[in-house]
Design a protein around this nucleic acid. Structure first.
Lengths: 151, 151
DNA sequence: ATAATTCCTCAACTATAGTTGAGGTCAAGC
DNA sequence: GCTTGACCTCAACTATAGTTGAGGAATTAT
């Protein structure tokens, strides 16, 4: 039984996870601190991860591409089995949720785009009339925006 | 000549700008510090703004809705006349730029959405095969994302 | 056995977009 | 003419998503 390769079978060091998932070691630390991933420690207090963590990191990065904040990603991941491979159903749930999220964001951006289009050259920005400043829009606008107008 | 109303003609205090544009006074300070808006001071060192600043603030908030960072908004605004009303052409330039920006972001989100769709249930996330992890995507992906994969 | 990596923790720092508070000044109303 | 409210500056703090560095321990390679 050769024991040459860094860590075989199913325990990866942070460095290996970092290299294989394409993120920095500090980011792995950070994700673990946030509870997004989990592992155990060896006798020398060094982090060891199951290779399942690679998929979790991939999932995190994909969700980030969709603009989902880590806290929300964490909520999704928390409902999933830890250290067990994501099942087809798990992955399906995630993708469906994220598609809904993406759909909302896309719709919101499209609305803004169309409003810009209809306002090209008008330059009005009238508080009363312009859809770009119309309070109705705010209700349909994306969530984390700061309060825009109140008159 | 009545001089009752807070500040008539064409000089608004921060408070008035804040109230009329719907942002906090601290935000006006912040924008001024960032060079996004400009004004002058009265004899008592208090900020005074032309009413043109209201439109500028509206423009800033609209651009933020589109997800454009303040630094970029500042670059656009810097090329515009200060303290002079935005012309139709100015506004047109802005909206066209922002639409292009929005189009890119929308395209990028749609691509991700479609990739998710094609991957529903596959759960592969294969480094080699999965479009969600495929390096080709990165080139087409949105700008400010952290580096994703390098193998 | 020693040297070179890798890893550990913890604190501090980056950037973005602001908000909050302290301590003090200015302007407006009565 | 004095009190209240609006304003001033500056520093510190919030949140998100990490990165960087110091000082020290563990692991790996020669």
């Amino acid at each position: 039984m050769p024991k040459k390769t860094p860590s075989k079978s199913d325990h990866l060091s942070v460095g290996e996870v970092a290299k294989r998932s394409g993120v920095a070691v500090s980011t792995i630390h950070f994700y673990e601190g946030k509870g997004l991933i989990e592992g155990w420690r060896n006798t020398g207090n060094q982090r060891r991860y199951s290779r399942m963590v690679l998929r979790r990191v991939a999932v995190i990065r994909i969700a980030q591409r969709a603009g989902i904040p880590l806290s929300v990603i964490g909520d999704y991941l928390a409902r999933l089995p830890k250290d067990i491979a994501l099942s087809k159903a798990d992955w399906q749930d995630l993708t469906v949720s994220w598609q809904a999220y993406l759909d909302e964001r896309i719709a919101s951006l499209l609305q803004l785009r169309n409003e810009l289009e209809s306002c090209i050259g008008c330059g009005c920005l009238s508080i009363a009339d312009c859809p770009l400043r119309n309070p109705e829009d705010r209700l349909a606008a994306e969530g984390p925006g700061p309060r825009l107008l109140q008159d």
